[in-house]
Structure formats: structure tokens, C-alpha cells
Amino acid sequence: MDTPRSAFFLGVRDQAPTIPGNLTFGMIVGAASSAAGMDPWLSMGMSIIVFAGAAQLVAIQLMAQHAPAAIVVLSIAIVNLRMAMYSAAVAPFFRHLPVARRWLFSYLLTDHAFALTTARFAPDREVENCDAYYLGVTATMWCTWQLSVATGLFAGLLVPASWSLDFAVPLVFLSLAVTALQTRLHWQVALVAGLAAAATAAWPMRLGLVASAGVAIAFGAWRAFQPVAQESP
């Protein structure tokens, strides 16, 4: 990573393996909004303004069910709350940048941008050209995402339902979740979230998602503050 240019293209290369999954994901988001009867401009507007796949998908489902605006915004916030964790993790790399650049980088922050950047760089070492790398990763994601949502808006409903392409969405999250499960407590938190989500799956307006994520985060915070002695088996 000698030059900003080579760092940028390294970012593009690192992001490339995520393209098939994200392309399918974006097409499903586009198709879901078409199926919900949402105006294509509104969908593209949401894709550009919110730029967060899971939150977009949940918001489309809720808007199609005429959920109250407060529930839509609350669900978007819960689904995207993990970005606060990513923000904290990548912040040390960009502390030296002008604040306007940091706002831009915030807007571009995604699961993969966090995972790839933290895997490539360590905050205590030299982080030369980390910003160019991050831009390479996120620019690739941004273009992939907008293109795939736009394609899904018009062509998504042409794909036969029997292909079950919507299954790509949990698979993308699965590959992200596996990298997030670093300690035993992470696994326990995930287990609590999964069990709660299964038990509340039938709740209306995806309130089960809000509830199970909330319960699991509270469980993690509580366990993290117990004395270390109680954590050993």
C-alpha cells in the first residue's frame, strides 16, 4: 500500500468477493419494494439516503403493512445499531482526517467496510493510505448496491420464486455473523438473540426483531459487567 492509488484498488479487490452476495441482496430489496407497490423513485431515494440493506428491507415490509412512522424509524435504528460498534472500531483510522471527510466516511460505513478495514489495519500501527483503501472498499459497495437495487426494481419480479433467491439475504448475514462471534459471550448473546427471534417471529410489524435484538444486547451488557470469576465454567 505504497500509494493512495494502490490502496484504493486493494480495497476494490478486497470488496470484490462480497459482490455476488450483495448483488443478490440488493436485487431482493428492489424486488420487495416493487412487490409492495412502492414508487421506484422512492425506493431509489431510500437506497441512496439510508444505504443499509437490512434496514431498507425491514422498512419496505413495514411501510407495506402501513406500520406507524415511529415503528419504521425505530426498526431502522435497531437494525443499524451495529453500525455504532463499527463506527467505534474504524474511528481511530480516520481521526486525522477533516471532519467533512469523516461524515462522508460515516455515510459509507457498512458491515463489509468495517470487517475488511479492521482486518487490514491495526489502529496502533501505521495506517498510511487507510482512507484510500476505505474509499476503494466503500465505493465498490455503493455502486454495487445502487445498481442492484435499481435492477431489482424492474427485473426482480421476473426471477421465479422457485429459485428462492431471497435465501441469499440470511446467508449474507450468516457470513457476517460468523466473523462477529469472537468469544464465548458473543456466542451466548447470539444464542439469546436467535432463540428470542424464533419465539417472537410471529409478532406483528417485526416487533420481534426489535425485542430480540434489545434483549440480547441487554444480556451481553449485563454479562460483560459480571465479575470475571463468574464467567469461567
Binding site: R82, A84, A180, H186, A193, G194, A213
Partner: peptide
Amino acid sequence: YVAAAVLP
């Protein structure tokens, strides 16, 4: 623990 809670 937020990602480990929200993703599942």
C-alpha cells in the same frame, strides 16, 4: 455485542 445480537 451489538452485531452478535442483531445479526441472529
